[in-house]
């Protein structure tokens, strides 16, 4: 039997110089990993923001600027985008996303779900509205091009979750009172 099968091959540990260098690099990296969520707006301290500014190229470059606030501060209502396309002949066609019937597999559905949720995030009164407006126009331009429509009317729909006691008393998750609509505007096809 070949003894090399039993005896492991070992690479390292490294010499002192490499250990020092790697120790410095991993320490700096761990600080960046921590700063990503620690300095995430809206609630952040001046100290965290200052440190984050120093680290910004590294944190942004490696996509470490994530809050990791999964379902926090708490799971809220969900958001959908409803649209109504109007064509040159005057006919109309409704639609919405996310849409379980057309967005399949589930991961694709979730991409559409995140797009509608993202519009709501950008609708935060503290956030510059120009950012939301650009995304709304991007969605509108896509719908117009995709369907060859003359205009499209977009609406952001907020769908609240009923309380447990309301459900026990018979309220359905699809009850109309749980939906709120807010117009995002009507957009015309741009002249080519």
């Amino acid at each position: 039997m070949n003894n090399t099968q039993d005896k492991p091959e070992t690479i390292g540990p490294p010499g002192r110089g490499v250990r020092v260098l790697v120790s410095v690099l991993v320490s700096l990296h761990i600080v960046a990993v921590f700063l990503g969520p620690f300095a995430m707006p809206p609630q952040t301290s001046e100290l965290a923001a200052t440190l984050a500014d120093v680290y910004r190229p590294y944190v942004d470059g490696l996509s470490l600027a994530n809050g990791y606030r999964f379902f926090a501060p708490e799971p809220g209502p969900s958001h959908l985008v409803r649209y109504e396309l109007t064509f040159d002949d005057g006919s109309t066609e409704p639609g919405e996303f996310p849409n379980r019937d057309s967005n399949w597999p589930r991961l694709l559905y979730h991409r559409y779900f995140m797009m509608s949720e993202f519009l709501n995030t950008l609708s935060n009164p503290d956030a510059p509205s120009e950012r939301r407006d650009r995304y709304v126009r991007s969605y509108a331009r896509h719908l117009l091009a995709e369907h060859g429509a003359k205009s499209v009317k977009l609406t952001l729909v907020r769908h609240w979750v009923p309380r447990m006691d309301e459900v026990r008393q018979g309220r359905k998750l699809t009850d109309k009172v749980l939906y709120e609509e807010r117009s995002l505007g009507t957009f015309e096809r741009e002249a080519s």
Binding site: F71, E74, P75, P98, F113, R163, M164, V167, L173
Partner: peptide
């Protein structure tokens, strides 16, 4: 988030139709 303290948060996720 208050819902994580009063224990309703998990329902708010499970009860979310979308």
């Amino acid at each position: 988030g208050p819902a994580w303290w009063d224990g309703n948060a998990m329902w708010m996720a499970f009860g979310n139709l979308e």
